[in-house]
Design a protein around this nucleic acid. Structure first.
Length: 158
DNA sequence: GCCAACGTTGGC
DNA sequence: GCCAACGTTGGC
């Protein structure tokens, strides 16, 4: 059974439009440096899973579209690259500390499903994103929440 | 730009 | 293992 996720990104850093413009509309989701998120990328995010693309620190912040997992967890190459922004000298290629997945663009919503709107929506009361103090950049989304949000967005390929 | 809520680091 | 200091996230 396919699972659902929500991946956060600051659009000034990397946006859904950037993903759409990629060759084959696919990109390596690298740079995650949080152990909880790492565990999800390494162990639970599977090929074919669907992902909400969330723009944080944005106006407004919210879910802007859908991607799918094109490649399952593998060692994050940027952790070994001294020139990379998220280089980690303590990550050893023989025992990698950080993981990445590949995401493929699926769809961009007509508009942003804003965080404020999500908060007001029935059926999303338990959504992790809306939980106080929840800052994780990779989050699990339930099938029910996926359905509600895609419906709000008028998604065609949800 | 502010600041609350976390996560990480490092001294002890 | 504790905890203070510091860094980051991300809404507002």
């Amino acid at each position: 059974m396919a699972r659902y996720w929500l991946f956060k990104s600051e659009p000034s850093d990397y946006s859904i439009q950037d993903l759409r413009k990629e060759k084959r509309k696919t990109a390596c989701w690298d740079g995650v440096r949080n152990y909880q998120a790492r565990n999800l990328l390494r162990d639970e995010v599977k090929k074919g899973d669907r992902v909400f693309f969330y723009h944080s620190n944005s106006k407004p912040s919210g879910v802007v579209g859908i991607a799918e997992v094109a490649k399952e967890g593998y060692p994050d190459p940027t952790a070994f690259d001294p020139k990379a922004k998220h280089f980690d000298p303590k990550s050893d290629p023989d025992n990698p500390r950080w993981y990445a997945v590949d995401l493929r663009f699926v769809e961009e919503f007509d508009g942003t499903v804003a965080l404020a709107t999500l908060r007001e929506t029935k059926g999303l009361e338990d959504m992790l994103l809306l939980r106080r103090g929840q800052r994780l950049s990779i989050q699990k989304v339930s099938a029910k929440e996926w359905k509600v949000v895609t419906k709000m967005a008028g998604a065609k390929k949800g």
